[in-house]
Computed example of a mutant assay.
Amino acid sequence: MVPGNQTQFTEFILLGFSEKSEQQGLLFGLFLGMYLVTVVGNQLRMLAIGSDSHLHTPMYFFLSNFSFVDICVVSTTVPKMLVSILTQNKVISYAGCLTQMYFFIVFGGLDNFLLTAMAYDHFVAICHALHYAAKMSSDVCSLLVLLSWIISLLDSLLYCLMVTRLSLCTDHEIQHFFFDLAEVLKLSCSDTLTNYALIYFAAGLLDFLPLVGILFSYTQICSSILKFPSAQCKYKAFSICGSHLSVVSLFYGTGFGVYLSSSATNSSWKSTVASAMYAVVTPMLNPFIYTLRNKDIKDALRRLISRIATSQ
Rank of each mutant, 00 (worst) to 15 (best):
L144S: 06
T57V: 06
I240H: 12
G50R: 14
Q312C: 10
Y35A: 11
N195H: 04
V212S: 07
S271I: 00
S311Q: 15
L98S: 00
G41R: 05
S261L: 12
N89V: 02
C127G: 06
T170H: 14
V140Q: 12
K90F: 08
P229W: 04
L30E: 05
L147V: 14
I305P: 06
S230I: 02
Y159T: 01
A125Y: 09
L153K: 00
K295C: 04
Q100H: 01
D180K: 09
M118W: 12
T57W: 03
T282C: 07
E173M: 10
H244V: 07
S64Q: 11
Y235V: 05
M162E: 04
S156F: 00
G16R: 10
Q6A: 13
T38N: 13
M101G: 00
P210H: 01
S239Y: 00
K90N: 09
Y196V: 05
M59P: 00
D299C: 06
L114G: 03
Y35F: 15
I174T: 01
E22K: 08
Y200L: 11
S268M: 07
S84K: 04
G109A: 07
Y252C: 08
H128I: 01
L193H: 05
C222I: 12
S275L: 13
L245Y: 09
K234G: 05
D139W: 01
A182Y: 04
A125K: 08
F17I: 04
M59R: 14
L47E: 04
L98Y: 01
R45N: 13
L153M: 10
L63N: 15
R302C: 11
K80H: 09
M284I: 06
F216A: 13
Y278P: 02
F208A: 15
G257I: 05
Y120D: 05
H244C: 05
V73N: 05
